[in-house]
């Protein structure tokens, strides 16, 4: 855990110091280009790598009643048998984390546990959802730097996000919530023994990296305020492939950009690839219709089995003894 924290701090510090002593274009221009290229190529390759292996069998995990008789109610989305059902299942999975939501816990109430209540143990679901959505919103909000004119929806988001009207510049809730959610996810790994045991550097590193990104981002907005106008010109330069001089922008900005670049670089090679992977998951994206539609396995080996003829040859006499119908009668088979 500390190793990954140190690593993140190191990346940040190098970028900060580097840009302070004049390598700003390296961290602000070259690195983001590289990172973005690696991210896109990496993710495409990773998905191609997955897609290259076939799905030999139809193995959805059925999470409810199958479609069978007309008087039995099917769980259309937990056990879909149509494309629409699968689409809804995937939608619920991706946008609402359906499977994490399943965590229910029972508790006995009353004397000697005469009643049972079920309540949901949804902390993980809640914070995971909050984290992913805030991350998305923060990402979308950043479009104000990438686009000119600033799209209408970005402005709307900002207004909504700052609806609390605290402080100046106005406090964006998503940033704060994102940080809180990240700290929760990190705290789980540290304080829950079970999770601490299964956690690897690869689990802490992206969390710390994201914490680093959020912290630098928050600082840029509220404390070590960056010259927004200059930053925008700089970023527009990058997006139009005609980089301008980074002079005059605070080094912290480059630390922020470098951490984001590190995330992009790390992304395709790590568990973060789950972003793309979820779409490929055969236990979720297949319809439970394998008795209705034949699923084809491209490497299906030839059939090889103990045939009836061999079977009858082995047991003909005893089969005749109990009067089982035979293909060849014992005396004829001997000929």
């Amino acid at each position: 855990m500390f190793l990954s924290l140190l690593l993140v701090l190191l990346i940040g510090a190098v970028a900060w110091a580097g840009s302070a002593v004049g390598f700003a274009s390296l961290f602000g221009v070259a690195l983001p280009y590289l990172a973005l290229a690696v991210f896109i190529v990496g993710m495409v390759c990773r998905m191609a790598y997955w897609a290259k292996s076939p799905v030999p069998f139809c193995i959805p995990t059925t999470g409810g009643q199958e479609q069978s008789l007309d008087f039995i109610k099917q769980a259309k989305f937990d056990c879909p048998n149509t494309r629409i059902g699968v689409f809804v299942r995937m939608f619920l999975e991706i946008f609402l984390f359906r499977s994490l939501f399943r965590n229910t816990q029972a508790d006995l109430v009353g004397n000697n546990g005469t009643g049972t209540v079920y309540y949901s143990s949804k902390w993980l679901w809640c914070f995971a959802l909050v984290f992913h959505y805030c991350f998305l919103l923060v990402f979308l909000r950043h479009f104000r730097f990438f686009t000119e004119p600033v799209p209408f929806w970005t402005t709307c988001l900002e207004t909504l996000d700052g609806v609390m009207q605290i402080g100046a510049p106005r406090f964006f809730m998503t940033g704060g919530i994102l940080l809180a959610a990240l700290l929760f996810l990190l705290g789980r790994r540290v304080f829950n023994e079970q999770l601490r045991y299964i956690s690897l550097v690869n689990d802490y590193f992206p969390l710390w990296l994201l914490v680093g990104i959020v912290c630098t981002g928050v600082c840029l907005r509220y404390f070590d305020k960056a010259e927004i106008a200059m930053v925008k010109i700089f970023i527009m330069g990058i997006t139009h492939f005609s980089p301008v001089s980074p002079d005059g922008i605070t080094p912290l900005f480059f630390a922020h950009v470098t951490l984001v670049s590190a995330l992009l670089l790390y992304f395709p090679f790590s568990k973060l690839a789950h972003m793309g992977g979820i779409f490929f998951s055969p236990t979720r994206n297949m319809a439970n219709n394998s008795r209705r539609v034949r699923h084809i396995n491209p490497w299906n080996p030839p059939k090889q089995y103990f045939t009836y003829a061999e079977y009858e040859d082995t047991y003909r006499d005893v089969m005749a003894e109990v009067g089982l119908p035979l293909e060849k009668e014992p005396d004829r088979a001997a000929e």
């Binding site: 029972a106 508790d107 006995l108 143990s121 023994e193």
Partner: peptide
């Protein structure tokens, strides 16, 4: 590593 579950979750 398994203590966390045993001690904290009250679901019977």
């Amino acid at each position: 590593e398994t203590k966390g579950l045993l001690g904290t979750v009250i679901d019977p």
